[in-house]
Design a protein around this nucleic acid. Structure first.
Lengths: 176, 176
DNA sequence: CTATGCTATATAACTGTTTATATAGCTGGT
DNA sequence: ACCAGCTATATAAACAGTTATATAGCATAG
């Protein structure tokens, strides 16, 4: 992102597409943030006329901005806690009177994960097919975006496995 | 949580331990939240003297609170986006002049994940060993907390696999 | 006896993020 | 002609969450 000059609107689109739901941001967060970064000298801005609608405010990284980016990467991976909302729900599943309701919950979760998995496989296939010049791997501008996809696939697969094992364990407990 | 009467302090401890870093909350978030839930009739509160320090404000779920919990579960799993900070960093790794810096980044990430995996295996082993009365599975009060652990293990394993594959791909690209 | 750490609650300040709303003009369909 | 949908920016209000700070008493280690 911001490797090439972009407006807030472009950035939003790239965020949504490229990071495949591993990070998102609303325009109401992006626009003030870009202004803040411009004010502290990390970005430069120039206006462009738009064919439709208001002028585009196009941002470019400054030398200072680039330095800060390199520092951010040099600090190493940010491995803070990863929040999974539905796990807090799973925790409360033993409060249910009818144990079959817990099973339904897990089956619903599994169905969602399978749908998502199939969607990501499709996106991944599209990325890989596009360029036959590199039989061993993708060019740089596709390699790094594809890494986020590859992790997504592995993690969702692991989650589906967990759903299956949990459903099996729950069925045994119900005595079904 | 809140299956049994608890103070904000208890809740924090249980959150941290039981959800194994899949969810956390600070006391400064918990205390006002409990007051809010008491005000809207979801919780009841009574004070207890404490052996050390100020009185304990102990909360219990009300009938209304229990209903709301059941509705929350009946709505199905909350499968919102899962944010992974380090993936946004991976995305920018192709900005680095020296490709070996990208490799170091991935190796640092792998080391962290391996450490975390080994820690979770230990915790999981401790949970399973404690009760020999159930040879096939755990009692209810351990089964549900263990599910969060089981998912954590599968996901971290998947992440380590991804790190290994990525490191391999990166090495090939460098020509090492 | 002093420092550290634990139980226990509370608030202020700040940052991050989402939802809702507004404006403005262009494009394509019915 | 009208409506829906897209590009494009902007702000207000609300909500979520963290960091810092304060108070207070007890226990334990050095």
């Amino acid at each position: 992102m911001l490797s090439e000059p972009q407006s807030g609107y472009d950035l939003k689109r790239n965020f949504d597409q490229a990071l495949n739901n591993f990070w998102s941001a609303e325009l109401s967060q992006i626009y003030p943030q870009l202004k803040k970064m411009e004010a502290s000298g990390l970005l430069k801005c120039h206006e462009e006329e738009s064919a439709s609608g208001p002028n585009r405010r196009v941002y470019t990284r400054s030398a200072k901005g680039r330095l800060e980016l390199l520092e951010w990467l040099a600090d190493g991976p940010q491995v803070g806690e990863e929040r999974i909302s539905y796990l807090t729900q799973v925790f409360f599943l033993n409060e249910l009177d009818d144990k079959k309701d817990g099973l339904s919950f897990m089956q619903e979760l599994r169905d969602y994960m399978v749908d998502r998995y199939e969607y990501l496989v499709e996106v991944d296939g599209f990325l890989r097919k596009d360029d036959p010049r590199y039989p061993n791997d993708l060019p740089d501008d596709e390699f790094f975006p594809q890494l986020t996809l590859a992790l997504g696939l592995k993690r969702i697969k692991a989650t589906i496995e967990w759903c299956d094992e949990t459903i099996k364990r729950m069925k045994t407990r119900i005595g079904d």
